[in-house]
Simulated scan of single mutants.
Amino acid sequence: MTAHKPAHPATSRPRPMGSDRNSTEEPAPHARRRGAPPEEGEFVRALTRRQVDDRMGELDALHARTATCAPREPAYEGPSGQDRGTAFQRRLAEHARRPGFELLVAEAVGSSGAKALTACAYGFPVHRAGSWWRDLDGYLPEDLLHLANGDGLFVVGGILVERRVRTQDQTRDWNLARRLQKRLLGGHTGAPAVTLVDGGDLESYRALLAWGWRPSPAGTWGTSRFAPRRLLVLR
């Protein structure tokens, strides 16, 4: 966005985020508009796999402050057990090696000019004839298995956002989680998206429903109340 330059001196105001002509990040055209939602002022951009590795510490810190409950991943617990951060980093590193893996981050620019990581979303395509994800076994109903055997599915491995994003203005298009998932899925319009949410994480489950996700026929509250996870679908 090109900043408006008044013809006469005016009171100095902060430079709008996204106004850097050399920036390759997504601009925030209304970030400074009166009453604009704060989420609009956050850049959303993709990271390469190398950048994911380089910023693993930041992503781990983001996970630590946004996760609503401990992940149920016994396969990642060593003889003495591993903390949640270690488990998250190992899962993310494994996901990042999958074909077609994509990760988006949202960043806000502070008063000092430094960028702070505020959210992320990541996922990868799966296909029965190609790279399958074993975690889906036992969760997919017949119609989704049929799609997996054909055009495939896109797995959203995680949407990490602050609690305010999960609980406030969930149905707004500018909600940061909605912006992230819309862009993440933008290149996969022909494939339904699926995600697994921990069975005890009611807050994330409700937030995902508010962001447009729906339970699969076999993943409703009543039929999978005691299952470790629930499958949600976004078409």
Rank of each mutant, 00 (worst) to 15 (best):
87 A>V: 13
176 L>M: 06
228 P>F: 07
176 L>Q: 00
30 H>W: 11
180 L>F: 01
218 A>Y: 15
217 P>F: 15
111 S>A: 15
151 D>H: 14
113 G>H: 13
129 A>R: 04
125 P>D: 15
190 G>T: 09
43 F>N: 03
162 E>R: 09
58 E>I: 14
112 S>N: 07
2 T>A: 10
187 G>A: 05
53 D>M: 01
116 A>W: 03
225 R>Q: 06
44 V>N: 02
109 V>L: 11
63 H>Y: 12
216 S>G: 15
132 W>V: 12
164 R>G: 12
136 L>T: 01
57 G>R: 04
112 S>L: 07
222 G>M: 14
153 L>V: 05
124 F>N: 12
235 R>C: 04
184 L>V: 08
165 V>C: 02
162 E>Q: 09
14 P>K: 06
84 R>H: 10
61 A>H: 04
21 R>N: 13
134 R>Q: 07
102 E>G: 04
160 L>A: 03
44 V>C: 04
112 S>G: 00
78 G>R: 05
123 G>M: 14
163 R>Y: 11
134 R>F: 09
220 T>P: 12
140 L>G: 14
200 G>W: 12
97 R>Y: 03
39 E>R: 01
186 G>I: 14
20 D>W: 00
161 V>M: 01
93 A>K: 05
219 G>Y: 14
76 Y>I: 09
83 D>L: 00
230 R>K: 04
36 A>C: 03
205 Y>P: 03
107 E>Y: 05
52 V>P: 05
16 P>T: 06
56 M>Q: 07
18 G>D: 06
131 S>K: 04
60 D>Y: 02
16 P>E: 02
37 P>C: 08
117 L>P: 03
120 C>Y: 04
11 T>M: 10
141 P>C: 12
232 L>S: 04
92 L>S: 00
158 G>I: 06
35 G>T: 10
182 K>Y: 09
39 E>H: 05
21 R>W: 14
6 P>L: 15
108 A>S: 07
207 A>L: 07
16 P>N: 00
208 L>D: 09
176 L>G: 01
55 R>A: 12
166 R>C: 07
72 R>W: 15
234 L>Q: 08
111 S>M: 14
125 P>F: 15
134 R>I: 10
190 G>M: 06
192 P>N: 01
61 A>N: 01
67 A>E: 09
138 G>V: 08
93 A>R: 02
94 E>V: 10
114 A>V: 12
40 E>K: 06
228 P>Y: 11
192 P>V: 11
219 G>V: 15
221 W>I: 15
89 Q>P: 05
51 Q>M: 07
107 E>P: 03
